[in-house]
């Protein structure tokens, strides 16, 4: 995959059909952002006008209250609180998920035992259940355990849909590497700690980063489970956004919040893509 990416960089090396496909992909990826950006700058934007009839900055002086981006950046929008919560929960979930999945994936990837296939299926099971079903059932239990409406509760519930992704990714990473290098290190006298940090981890790091990226993105986009277990106390970017778009129409502040919500993912994608591409051990 990394190989193809580097080839694509040289756009002249591919034939026109492929070029068209790349263009189509780019359009599909970028196009949804265009109306979002325009909407976030609009005051009144009615069909069939291609652009808003009144822009936010035109109305700004006349408005008795902060509009559009002024509202998004005002304390009342709770964007700062939601961003901190989203990132904090996302990072914590990712780290916990990694700690849980690394040993599990090692066993699943490098050992064979009875019932292994069934176990792999079981791990994937939470992905098949609708979020709403998990959320409502868990809410009752979490209320009884004093976990409803707490960060701890939300973090625990975020682990449910993220563990399957992380476990899958790491399992295939371990499968791809085998145990040869680790065996060599052990023969040469390294202890378990040294083996893990000096041999295993550097080898699997790109896979770990990819798994973390997915976990983080899934966690930062979870609405329903966050809403049920957080009980509205814990505001994240998805819950904030949902309150704005539940009417089927997105206003300027909703569009602004949506754009902000996509920022962490975009930054992270660029960062990890660079990291993996420049990683010395990458094939």
């Amino acid at each position: 995959m990394i190989g193809t990416a580097s080839k694509l960089r040289d756009i002249k090396a591919i034939n026109p059909w492929q070029r068209l496909l790349v263009l189509a992909m780019a359009v599909f990826t970028i196009a949804p952002f265009a109306p979002l950006i325009i909407q976030s700058l609009a005051f009144r934007w009615a069909w069939p006008n291609i652009l808003p009839t009144v822009w936010w900055f035109e109305q700004r002086q006349r408005s008795p209250f902060p509009l559009a981006w002024d509202y998004v950046f005002s304390p009342s929008s709770r964007v700062v609180e939601a961003t901190i919560n989203t990132l904090g929960i996302g990072i914590t979930v990712t780290l916990l998920c990694l700690v849980i999945c690394l040993p599990a994936a090692r066993v699943l990837g490098q050992r064979t035992f009875r019932g292994k296939n069934q176990l792999e299926f079981l791990i994937a099971l939470p992905l098949l259940l609708p979020e709403a079903a998990i959320g409502i059932a868990l809410l009752m239990i979490f209320i009884a355990l004093d976990l409803a409406g707490t960060y701890v509760g939300v973090i625990i519930v975020h682990l449910i849909p993220t563990i399957p992704y992380m476990a899958r990714t790491l399992t295939s990473v371990y499968q791809g590497h085998g145990t040869d290098a680790e065996d060599h290190a052990r023969v040469l006298g390294a202890n378990r700690r040294q083996i893990f940090f000096r041999v295993t981890l550097p080898m699997i790091l790109p896979g770990v980063i990819a798994g973390c990226l997915f976990t983080f993105l899934v966690s930062t986009n979870l609405f329903l489970l966050t809403f049920f277990i957080g009980q509205g106390h814990i505001v994240t970017l998805p819950t904030l956004l949902f309150a704005k778009i539940s009417g089927g129409a997105l206003d300027a502040t909703g569009a602004g919040i949506a754009l902000i919500a996509s920022v962490p993912g975009v930054i992270l994608l660029i960062f990890t893509d660079r990291f993996i591409r420049n990683y010395p051990l990458a094939e």
């Binding site: 009144r44 009615a46 069909w47 539940s246 009417g247 089927g248 129409a249």
Partner: peptide
């Protein structure tokens, strides 16, 4: 429409 926001949007768009 399912709610007032959706109706408002229909109204805005004539």
């Amino acid at each position: 429409p399912e709610n007032s926001d959706e109706l408002d949007n229909l109204f805005l768009n004539s």
